[in-house]
Amino acid sequence: MQKNPVICRKLSKTFQQGEVKIPALVDVDLEIPKGDFVCLSGPSGSGKTTLLNLISGLDNPTSGEIELDGQRIDQMNQSSLAEIRLYKIGFVFQSYNLIPVLTAQENVEFVMQLQGIDSKVRAKKARHILKEVGLEGLEKRRPGDLSGGQQQRVAIARAIVSKPSLILADEPTANLDSHTAESLMELLQSMNSEHGITLLFSTHDQLVMSYSKRLIKLHDGRIASDEKL
């Protein structure tokens, strides 16, 4: 049986600010099956980003368990977590976070380079994926020479190029106009339906939510609702 890409059990995260303990996530139980398209929504401070950070292994939980493709990651050291992120997770950030001195194609190749893929194979794959996200002809441009929407497409290309089992996106449309956001969401939806890539987004954007298959609302670090759309 295919394991669920993401399973969280009793997941909690508490931040310490001086003497004060701030609970960011409290006993979150969550399962995301393969090919799902999940949106996390909720007001600021509800724990969306914290949950994404924990699932991606960028941060360690205070308590609870996280399984990624059947592997417990909550106890892993930084080096093993880096391996998990490299091979299993694709990231799309709010502010694109491309490496400014690398071209669009080199940014896409970067992850594959970390994976030790041969340069010819990388270049071919990167060009192919850039064409798929609609950036053919812009491969040699640096991020500074691309629009916000184009940069986010490069970021998406970078996230999906090595076929991760999960793509995490933290407010991916926050810096984009509605037209660009819509075309981007269509792209991601097609990635989800054609390649079966599991998507987990955090967003405030109704547009993003309308494209997702499942909406989880967080409130004060707890799951307030979890509904299929």
Binding site: S56, Q78, S79, R85, I89, F91, I99, F110, L114
Partner: peptide, 9 residues
């Protein structure tokens, strides 16, 4: 970001 993408320190 590089660390998040899986680069080792």
């Amino acid at each position: 970001v590089m660390l998040a993408l899986g680069a080792k320190p």
